[in-house]
């Protein structure tokens, strides 16, 4: 961590190099489980973003007080507190998304991204940059969930429905035949496998050009 960091670079790092799905390969359970549609993906990512920011903030404030030996239980309690807040807020204000996400909201507690950032970043850095880092990683997570959710929703149902508004519908317009399996569990594995292969392919191409 040199002094040449800026707000923008710390923020972008969460989207590019430390991207939760393709860079760090963390937090895969929610990435696959809730991405049956864009809407669910956004709901999940928003919850995770809030927990990330909250826990990074609190862990970073307390980082000089936390004894090294018991830091993981303390981080878990901090995270679990914010997850409970998200859980109650979503149940009260967005009951539809809450019902669709089900058990995966309380499971943000064990999402490796959140504890990973608390452990790897917030414990070693100041409050301001910890929050920026949380926003960056959270945004990277949001983009990934929207991408995977979008692919699965378009292929699986033939259209995109966002917060009750049907954006477009290929079934009636183009006579598209939806691939139902894309919204089931095999579709999740296939989508992420193909996306990862594409990312790897680009990395290999880049390495060949560079070397």
């Amino acid at each position: 961590m040199g002094d040449n960091r800026s707000v923008a670079s710390e923020f972008m790092r969460g989207i590019t190099k430390d991207n939760p799905t393709f860079g760090l390969v963390l937090g895969l359970c929610p990435t696959l489980a809730v991405t049956t549609s864009i809407e669910n993906g956004i709901g999940m990512a928003a919850g995770t973003l809030f927990v990330l920011v909250g826990s990074n903030l609190l862990v970073s404030i307390l980082r000089k007080e936390i004894p090294d030996t018991v830091r993981i239980p303390i981080e878990l309690i901090v995270i679990a507190t914010f997850v409970s807040i998200v859980d109650m807020v979503m149940e009260a204000f967005t009951p539809d998304i809450y019902a669709a996400l089900g058990v995966y909201i309380p499971l943000i507690v064990v999402n490796c991204i959140v504890i990973g950032r608390a452990e790897a970043y917030a414990l070693k850095n100041g409050v301001f940059y910890s929050i920026i880092d949380a926003f960056g990683v959270g945004t990277g997570f949001l983009l990934m969930l929207m991408l995977i959710g979008g692919i699965r929703e378009v292929l699986g149902t033939g259209g995109i429905k966002l917060f009750g508004v049907q954006l477009f519908d290929m079934v009636s317009m183009l006579g598209y035949n939806p691939i139902g399996i894309m919204t089931l569990s095999p579709g999740a594995f296939l989508t992420i496998a193909v996306l990862m292969a594409i990312v790897n392919y680009r990395r290999i191409l880049k390495a060949m050009k560079g070397g």
């Binding site: 390969v25 399996i181 089931l184 569990s185 095999p186 594995f189 296939l190 992420i192 496998a193 990862m196 292969a197 594409i198 790897n200 392919y201 290999i204």
Partner: peptide
């Protein structure tokens, strides 16, 4: 591009989950 790592594992998981489903 698939390699032997996570990507490969996900392709196997795709086939496995099809059979399970």
């Amino acid at each position: 591009a698939v390699g032997r790592g996570v990507t490969y594992a996900f392709f196997i998981a795709f086939v496995m989950s099809m059979s399970f489903a």
